[in-house]
Design a protein around this nucleic acid. Structure first.
Length: 516
RNA sequence: GCGGGUGUAGCUUAGUGGUAAAGCUCCAGCCUUCCAAGCUGGCUAUGAGGGUUCGAUUCCCUUCACCCGCUCCA
């Protein structure tokens, strides 16, 4: 079909470079510490970026907490919010598995440029012609067949009884081990680097002394702040299973390699819901939230074409999701992932992993007591729709970015009016003949209800172009006719079409458009 | 973290071992009855640090940031 084809080619012209440049030029996103040359993995949100981000954040909160969706039983589901501390007792991160899971030592291969987790490797001891030992490293999953094939390729006779040991242990025990070992995919000895620690949690010290006892972590996810408060919320807010606790906030991960603008940064924002339900209902609720969340992103203007739903393969599941129903991702086709997709939100079945862990580590009972049957006590299961707020902002920016050679700006941002940083601009056609005064009158009328711009300087074309670039959906223009009959023209961003409406109807006009 | 590439004004580009140039944007003013028009004026740059040199934006080293590929993304 022709139109679809045209749309695809337009999508293909979206270039991250142009999007990043527009973000900086118009004040959406700046490199953090720009005047000092930036800092890898950190970004600042400018005057328009913070509006956009706040709009997305507020819409999520409204959709989840203030006005939660209607459940399968026809009644609104029950969700309350929290805002927990970024720094918590470090024991919380031991219980959650982050302190262990985040500090795996890694080994690099200089020959193949591949990287391995040290604890996932094993090594075989082989004797060469001179009678000296050397070693061949394998992936821990390598079976007999793989091992035989590899040995054949390396020209080494296979010996069924050749000793095989954990890489970790042999690195410690065998002198100059690295000089004598062939990497899992290498052809020569001595290409592996010493194991290096990659701790993905940011560390700090609480209090004046910087010693082991005062060590603390910046949270790598907002979810744990919810689990930590599960009991407090249950005891204070009369919620009953099934119910949810929501949180929006910053999280920090010392990523090895931040990439792709704000997609993977070291400081980012999450919007997470932990939905507590009975184990037997987990499947039902995961489906419910998956549909609900998909609808959310579509309602904000992300197109079907750019959205994809994908279930995690079993080998990519997180430690907490392995035993359950798995994780379903909502993915977006970012310009830098296209034709592939990148994660926007994950809907995970965390089972009872987190509450059980906290119960064990803290000694506090995390059981829920069924009010209808007090003998029925259980640790609820959790369905977690966890979305990236800053990733959402990026998706909205990428979706909105629309090159258009037919207009002066060459590009416009096609934001839904609900998320546009500015809802309208009021533009007197000329800076004389009473136009500015009329414009200011309209501006004063609208400003209390809508974020609007009043722009008087320069010719009208430049002003339309500027509003196109920041994604303002409507421009109200005051001209000589306004002086006579109090009507203004509405210029619609996407079509550039104009219609004339009464000045007194402008607020109502905007109100209507906000709902669509 | 590895390999490759790139860093000159807000943007796009020029140029040189010896005063860093232009277009657009932006700002001010004039003009202007609807899409970056015109005229006048203005602000703003060699990513940072070090070395060689009488003199470095240019050559060398280090570093930082960004882009691409790998890796990583619990």
């Amino acid at each position: 079909m022709q139109p679809a084809k045209a749309e695809t080619s337009q999508t293909a012209t979206k270039d991250m470079k142009d999007i990043v440049a527009l973000c900086k030029r118009r004040g959406f996103v700046f490199p953090a510490s720009d005047i000092y040359g930036g800092i890898n993995g950190f970004w600042d949100y400018g005057p328009l970026g913070v509006e956009l981000k706040n709009n997305l954040r507020d819409l999520w909160w409204r959709r989840m907490v203030t006005c939660p969706p209607i459940g399968p039983d026809g009644h609104p589901v029950q969700i309350v919010g929290v805002d927990s501390a970024i720094i918590q007792n470090p024991k919380a991160w031991v219980a959650s598995g982050h302190v262990g899971g985040f500090s795996d030592p890694m080994v690099d291969c200089r020959e193949t440029k591949l990287r391995y987790r040290e604890d996932k490797l094993k090594a075989m001891t082989v004797v060469d012609k001179k009678g000296d030992n050397f070693y061949i490293a394998f992936d821990e999953d390598a079976d007999q067949e793989i091992i035989q094939k590899r040995l054949k390729k390396l020209g080494i006779a296979y010996e069924a009884n050749a000793p095989m040991g954990a890489f970790e242990k042999m690195y410690k025990d065998v002198p100059n081990f690295l000089e004598k070992v062939i990497g899992p995919d290498a052809s020569k000895v001595g290409t592996l680097t010493p194991p290096k620690q990659f701790n993905l949690m940011f560390q700090t010290y609480v209090g004046a002394t910087a010693d082991e006892d005062s060590k603390a972590y910046l949270r790598p996810e907002t979810a744990q702040g919810i689990f930590l408060n599960y009991k407090n919320v249950l005891d204070s807010s009369r919620v009953k299973i099934p119910f949810g606790i929501a949180q929006i906030g910053k999280a920090f991960r010392n990523e090895v390699n931040p990439r792709n603008f704000i997609f993977r940064s070291r400081e980012f924002e999450q919007m997470e819901l932990e939905w507590f339900c009975h184990k037997d209902d987990a499947a039902k609720w995961q489906k419910f939230w998956f549909e609900e969340r998909k609808k959310f992103w579509k309602d904000l203007g992300l197109s079907d074409e750019n959205l994809q739903m994908r279930n995690h393969d079993s080998d990519e599941l997180s430690h907490y999701a392995k035993a359950g129903l798995g994780t379903a991702d909502i993915e977006y086709k970012f310009p830098f992932t296209a034709p592939g997709f990148g994660e926007l939100e994950g809907i995970a079945h965390r089972c009872d992993f987190d509450l059980t862990q906290h119960q064990q580590h803290s000694g506090e009972k995390m059981e829920y007591i069924d009010p209808d049957d007090p003998k029925n006590r259980y640790i609820p299961h959790v369905i977690e729709p966890a979305a990236g707020l800053t990733r959402g902002v990026l998706a909205l920016l990428c979706e909105a970015f629309t090159p258009d050679p037919n207009r002066p700006s060459g590009v416009y941002l096609n934001f839904h009016p609900k998320i546009a940083p500015k809802k309208a601009a009021i533009l007197p056609l000329m800076a004389k003949d009473g136009h500015p005064e009329k414009a200011e009158k309209l501006y004063m009328e609208l400003r209390e209800e809508f974020p609007v711009d009043l722009d008087i300087k320069q010719n009208i074309g430049k002003r339309y172009a500027r509003q196109d670039e920041i994604g303002t959906p409507f421009c109200f223009t005051i001209d000589n006719d306004t002086m006579n009959d109090d009507t203004v023209t509405v210029r619609e961003r996407n079509t550039m079409a104009q219609e004339r409406i009464s000045m007194s109807k402008v607020a109502e006009y905007l109100r209507t458009k906000m709902k669509v």
